[in-house]
Amino acid sequence: MLPRLQAQEKLAAIDVALLASGGFGQRDAQAMLGGLRRQANGVEHMPKVRASSAQLGMIGIGVRIVPPPQEAANG
């Protein structure tokens, strides 16, 4: 795990050097800085998770699946 962490840190250092020297385009630089600011502030994108009926049942939430309403027969 340590070599992986070291590689990530080296890549981050390279990105910082390129960012500081103007090696990235303006959009890329702004996106990188925005990502770093979000990480620094602890605001990271959380994946949307959808609980299953079984998971909700385990915490005491009942789930009832209601069939969609059927349209009245034309005739």
Rank of each mutant, 00 (worst) to 15 (best):
L2D: 02
P3K: 01
P3M: 00
L5I: 01
L5F: 02
L5A: 14
L5W: 01
Q6P: 03
A7D: 03
A7Q: 08
A7V: 11
A7C: 05
Q8D: 10
E9D: 13
K10V: 10
A12Q: 14
A13F: 01
I14F: 04
I14S: 14
D15T: 07
L18S: 02
L19C: 07
A20E: 14
S21E: 13
G22A: 06
G23R: 03
G23I: 01
F24A: 00
F24K: 05
R27C: 03
R27I: 07
D28A: 10
A29M: 07
Q30N: 13
A31E: 15
M32P: 03
M32S: 01
L33V: 07
L33M: 11
G34D: 13
G34Q: 15
G35E: 12
L36G: 14
L36C: 13
R37A: 11
R38V: 06
R38I: 00
Q39C: 12
Q39Y: 09
Q39S: 12
A40M: 08
A40E: 08
N41T: 09
N41D: 15
N41V: 02
N41I: 05
G42N: 10
V43C: 10
E44W: 07
H45L: 11
H45D: 15
H45K: 06
M46C: 15
M46W: 09
K48Y: 09
K48T: 15
K48S: 14
V49E: 08
V49R: 15
V49K: 13
A51H: 12
S52E: 05
S52P: 01
S52Q: 09
S53T: 03
L56S: 07
L56M: 11
L56D: 07
L56R: 05
G57K: 09
G57E: 02
M58T: 14
M58L: 14
I59V: 15
G60V: 04
G60I: 03
G60C: 05
I61K: 08
I61T: 04
G62H: 04
G62N: 09
V63N: 03
V63M: 06
R64F: 06
V66G: 07
V66L: 14
V66A: 03
P67F: 03
P67K: 06
P67M: 00
P68F: 00
P68K: 09
P68L: 02
P68M: 02
P68T: 09
P69V: 11
P69D: 04
Q70F: 12
A72R: 11
A73V: 12
A73H: 13
N74G: 14
N74L: 11
N74I: 09
G75K: 01
